[in-house]
Structures are given as C-alpha cells and as structure tokens.
C-alpha cells in the first residue's frame, strides 16, 4: 500500500510533464470578412525552398551554443555537533533547445563524503519555462556506488519558483524521486534572501547509503546573499540537513547524525 503511494509520488514528475509543456499550436479559424480573402498563414512560414545566402553567410546567428556553470551552494556548515562542507552546482552546454547538463552535489563530513550525487543529462526545452531532462545519475562518494536512470523536469514555475523534479530508476529496479525548489526574495537589488529545499524519496531502503523507504532526507537552507556582481555572491545562511521517517531510524541505529541546523557561510558563483 505505502509502496503504491510512493510509486505514485515518484511518477508525479513524469505525469505532470505534459501539463507543464504548455505548448500549443496556433489554430487559425477560417472566418472570412467582407471582401477580404484571409489566408491563415504566416508570411514568414518555414519554406521548403531554402534561401540561398550570398557566400553562404547567414545574416544573424540565433542558433549558437552557450556554456555556463553555477555553484549554487559552496559552503561551510557549522554546528557544535559537527561541521561539514557542501557543494551543489550544475553546468550546461548547448543551444536554446538542446543542452547537456552536468549536476553535482555532495557533503563532506568528518572527512567522509556522503550524499554524492552526480548526473549527466540531456535537456530539451519543451515550453516557455520548462525543460525535460533525461540521463544517468551516479551516487559516488565514500558509500557504496549506485547508478540510476533519470527523467525529470526543470524550470521556472508560476510565481517564479525555481523547480526541479526528477524520477530515477536504479540498476537494481528501485525507484526514487527528488524534488527541489527555491525562491529569490529581493530585499534590495543586490541583497537576496533565498529559501531552498531538496527532498529525496525512495521506494526501498538502502541502509548502506542511509536511505530509507519513503521520504528519506531533506536538505534545506535559508540563504542571504549579496551580489557583489551578478556572478559572485557571498552569503550567510542557516541550513538544515536531516533524515526522516525510516531513514531517520536507520541513521539513528548507525549512531549517525540524524539532523542538524547549522550556521552556514558560502559563496554563490557562476560563469
């Protein structure tokens, strides 16, 4: 029963994709007006006879590829119980429609790397604000390695929420999903408060990786950054990372840190 519920949650990102796609073709209506012949086509419709440009020179270059990377989180987290270091970033290369994405995140705690998650995705723009992304995920850190297939959506939701939802299926036939969101509150044009949260859900527990069935872990932060310039913004934050439900019990039994609120300092930067 709970498993079915979990599957449903995991499949949510996949099923909502068509609704997010929003794309709809213009459908002309053949309404003739007085003595006017209305041809419902665009004067600049794609043509089967391509234009031959002199010297094969296209007058503008609207189909270029771009390359960017961003480290959203690059931070030290401090608490009496133990401090750690975390990064979360992504890079992409490609055109308006087709891009290759690399996403990576991980946490270094007591010299041990955990929550290492690295994804290589193909991304296709499907609507004004959303991309569908598919590829592979590898959990590589000091725990056992897992590999997954990934399919999800990423984009800007209503009210300008940054949103990502990805479903995963592992090489061992397990399912997982991750939902991430963030929002930028502009206090001033350079001082920006950003609440952010990431949730991971799994269908089956994986104690070796501190994973429990159901809602397994959460990583959230409230970051106050100052954009010295757009591409460089130091921040202070409070962050919370913790295990929930079954994972909480697993970690507790392993005498691990089940959750902590930490003072955090970091830098957001991009190129």
């Amino acid at each position: 029963m709970t498993r079915a519920l979990l599957l449903a949650v995991i499949l949510v990102p996949v099923t909502v994709m068509p609704t997010l796609a929003q794309g709809s073709a213009a459908t002309g209506t053949a309404t003739a007006t007085r003595s006017t012949k209305t041809a419902y086509h665009a004067a600049d419709a794609p043509s089967s006879t391509p234009v031959v440009y002199l010297g094969n020179m296209k007058p503008v270059m609207d189909h270029a590829s771009y390359f960017h990377g961003i480290l959203d989180e690059f931070e030290g987290r401090y608490a009496p119980g133990g401090s750690d270091f975390r990064w979360d970033g992504e890079a992409w290369y490609g055109t308006d429609y087709n891009r290759v994405w690399l996403k990576t995140e991980g946490t270094l705690e007591h010299g041990r790397l955990h929550d290492g998650d690295h994804e290589l995705l193909y991304s296709r723009a499907i609507s004004s604000y959303f991309n569908v992304q598919g590829g592979v995920r590898a959990d590589i850190d000091d725990g056992p390695t897992r590999t997954w297939g990934a399919l999800g959506v990423q984009g800007l939701a209503l009210y300008e929420f940054e949103f990502q939802a990805t479903a995963y299926v592992s090489d061992r036939g397990r399912f997982a999903t991750r939902i991430e969101g963030s929002y930028d509150f502009l206090l001033t044009n350079r001082l920006i408060l950003q609440p952010q949260a990431e949730f991971n859900l799994y269908t089956k527990s994986d104690p070796a990786r501190q994973v429990g069935a159901g809602l397994s872990d959460v990583d959230a932060g409230l970051r106050l950054r100052y954009e010295v310039w757009r591409k460089f913004a130091p921040y202070v934050a409070v962050s919370y990372a913790g295990y929930l439900t079954q994972a909480h019990r697993i970690v507790h039994d392993q005498r691990g840190e089940t959750g902590a609120l930490r003072f955090t300092f970091g830098v957001r930067s991009w190129f």
Binding site: Q22, G23, S24, A25, A26, T27, G28, T29, T36, K37, T38, A39, Y40, H41, A42, A43, A45, D96, Y97, A125, I126, S127, S128
Partner: peptide, 13 residues
Amino acid sequence: MEVDDPGPPPINV
C-alpha cells in the same frame, strides 16, 4: 484583397 494572418502566436519555447 488578401490578408496573411498567422493568427495569435503559440505559447511555446
């Protein structure tokens, strides 16, 4: 005499 009307544009990428 003749109107080339594409209709409202689609909402798309």
